[in-house]
Amino acid sequence: MALVFARIDDRLIHGQILEVWVPFLNVDCIVVANDEVAAAGLRQNIMRAAVPRGTQVFFEKVAGLKKFFSSQELIHRRILVLFSRSADALEAVRLGLSIPEVNLGNLHAEGAVDRVSCTVWLYPEDVDNLNAMEKAGVEVVSQCVPSDRKESWRQLIHNLDG
């Protein structure tokens, strides 16, 4: 099993994932780690229908992710895992999932929230969660699509102080 890419993206499976990241990374398996979607058959069917043939999709609760990743079914897979929020990614790391790097894709918000890039807004609790992930050894970066420059999130929040 190779966990090729972990991303926080509040849109989960959408155009950027299907048209750009999947072919760019040559992954053959997408894992959506989200408690709501894991319990919503219709949303799963829609996402599954959009994914190209040859790419497997799994919908898992965050709490079950560590165990799921040890299953035989994934042994030869190249995997992209999607979280919709920073709290879920942090929980997965706390439960023992090994994620070397997490990508901030789309984290949208409205109102009095700090916007750190074109597609990333961070609430104070996001900053806390990402800090905690970093302490646990996860590198936190931002890159919406492969053609964007990959930036450390430290650089992004540093810009806020200026």
Binding site: I13, G15, L18, A50, V51
Partner: peptide
């Protein structure tokens, strides 16, 4: 514009 894209996902 595209099945599986955000405009579609939200419209559904």
């Amino acid at each position: 514009d595209m099945f599986g894209g955000t405009p579609c996902n939200i419209s559904l």
